[in-house]
């Protein structure tokens, strides 16, 4: 028994080191999670079946109402879309004039969150689409409002998404108003991001919208991320304390949007796709 426990401890420590430093264990994890998929399925059953029931037994009136409101919303969105199309072409034309490479239009896929509780001390969610749908490690995940996070583990049926508020996550952002670049670090709290290393005199205000800067090549450019909620400038400190609240409904979302970027910036020294343990894209955390 004693030799066995020593063996178990050594193997566990070796596994942890390998899982943390290198990433050879992704295949093992993926295979195991396929084997364990039935457990996830059973746990998710009450939610999926209740959704199915409410869809099946909703009344004609409810459906009519829903239809009407959806049609109204669709009309509004289409009107906005028209404006967007013209803006997009204009933008593309101007960029062509400036001779800068930029591509608009991305492939997206909608996935549902699986109702399964993961480790309570990490900000992760499980989604019901996996590598069978073409999802890869490091893929950006959005919700209807803003960036949610990125994929860190995949198996054929499900994928684990690391949210932007996890302490291991860092996201290159810029202030939408003036283009000031920074990095949004997760704090471990679901409603807070932190912008470190911004000098006291930097031009950032409460209410500023942070968007992805696209540096690092993992997230597409220009998606909203968070809104600055507090800027504290202490004259004695070298840097201002800047906090932001994610625009995505991280704790309430039920659907997630997976994005395939058409123009990944490959040559910026960005780490390639098979290093999922560096979710901090181009930058590593201090």
């Amino acid at each position: 028994m004693t030799t066995r426990v020593v063996f178990a401890v050594v193997v566990s420590v070796a596994l942890m080191v390998m899982d943390q430093r290198q990433h050879h264990l992704e295949a093992v994890r993926s295979t195991l999670s396929v084997v364990l998929y039935p457990l996830n399925f059973i746990v998710n059953l009450p939610q999926s079946s209740s959704r199915w029931l409410s869809e099946t037994f909703s009344t004609r009136k409810q459906l009519h109402e829903q239809n009407r409101s959806l049609r109204k919303e669709n009309l509004l969105l289409q009107a906005r879309q028209q404006k967007l199309v013209s803006l997009e072409t204009e933008n593309q034309r101007l960029r062509d004039l400036l001779d800068s490479s930029f591509k608009i239009g991305e492939r997206v896929l909608i996935a549902e969150l699986v109702a399964v509780d993961l480790d309570p001390f990490r900000q992760q969610v499980l989604i019901n689409k996996g590598s069978r749908s073409g999802i890869y490690n490091g893929q950006p995940v959005l919700d209807a409002n803003a960036v949610m996070g990125q994929v860190i583990h995949t198996n054929p049926f499900t994928a684990t998404v690391l949210l932007i508020t996890d302490v291991r996550h860092a996201l290159p952002v810029q202030v939408n108003r003036n283009g000031l670049r920074s990095i949004a670090l997760g704090t471990g709290r679901i409603n807070e991001l932190e912008l470190p290393n911004l000098p006291n005199n930097s031009d950032i205000q409460v209410g500023d919208l942070l968007v992805t800067s696209g540096l690092g090549g993992r997230f597409p450019t220009g998606y909203p991320v968070a809104q600055v909620i507090s800027v504290i400038r202490e004259p004695g400190q070298p840097f201002a304390t800047v906090k932001a609240r994610p625009k995505a409904y991280l704790e309430r979302a039920r659907e997630a949007l997976l994005v395939w970027t058409l123009s990944p910036i490959k040559n910026l020294g960005a780490d390639d796709d098979d290093t999922p343990e560096a979710p901090a894209s181009a930058t590593s955390k201090p």
Binding site: V9, Q20, L25, L32, L36, L118
Partner: peptide
């Protein structure tokens, strides 16, 4: 049931809850 089963359970928990592989396995085998 002993160290072996404990270790296996730990690995399964690690995969299910998305922690580092070996994190629960180490604790449970001990």
């Amino acid at each position: 049931v002993g160290v072996g089963i404990g270790w296996l359970t730990g690995i399964i928990i690690d995969v299910l809850t998305g922690t580092l592989l070996g994190q629960h396995a180490l604790a449970l085998s001990l």
